[in-house]
Design a binder for these strands. Sequence first.
DNA 1: CTTTATGTTGCGGG
DNA 2: ACCCGCAACATAAA
Length: 262
Amino acid sequence: MPELPDVEGFRRVLVACVEGRRVERVEVIDPGVLHDVSGAQLRRRLKGRRVTGVRRHGKWLLLDAEGTVLALHFGMTGELVCCHTGDPRERHDRVVIAVDTNRELRYRDQRKLQGLWLLDATEVDGFLAHQGPDAMTVSAAEFDRRLARRRGVKALLMDQSALAGLGNLLTDEILWRARLHPARRADNLSDEERGRLRDGMRRVLRAAVADGRVPERETWLTGHRDDPRPRCPRCHGTLRRSRVAGRTTVWCPRCQRAPGSR
DNA sequence: CTTTATGTTGCGGG
DNA sequence: ACCCGCAACATAAA
């Protein structure tokens, strides 16, 4: 589930649930999601602290707690939910952070591909140093600079060190909207094509972030990618499914022409 | 049993 | 130096 818009949705969950509140209890149900920190350390360093802010960069979510920062990444199956204390525990609840309002934040994740990191506020910049600019706020000039590589455009858009926040679904959606074949090389897009790409990215992101998730819509690819015989919502041609940049890729061979060079 | 899944990283090879 | 595909990580569902 989690790409930039989903993580932005989690950020709002956090704001509503714990921002400004004091951490009363930290419960580590499955230490397998903790990185470089034990359950006891996590508890000791969060308990009693006030949550002073919540930030997102790409797919990373950062919870500030008076000098200590909890960094969360959701992998493919993670989510953040706000519960009342006493709500029944679910099978994949891994960590619970309860605050002084009878509410608790739960990090829920089936596959445990990523997890939680605990940092000192001074370590955050270094921690995110390898991340590219956030896809939601990147400037046109910086976007163009990031795309100036000899790589497949889909691989590049999904590369978090080039641009942070886009995953497999969003990337397909953006390329479809910009009418660009996913296997095109990024460095020989025309100025017009690169403009279309950035425009598509902005529109897709704006709509998805407003929803706090990547929506499944009839007028988007997302609403069709799991259909048995998926049709393009724009030209009604049959969509194709293949593997690009190591991931399942859905695109319209009529709307999104030729890889090669042009 | 096999395949697939919205992520990231590290490795081998071109 | 740059780029690609692929396996690995852990788990569930089709």
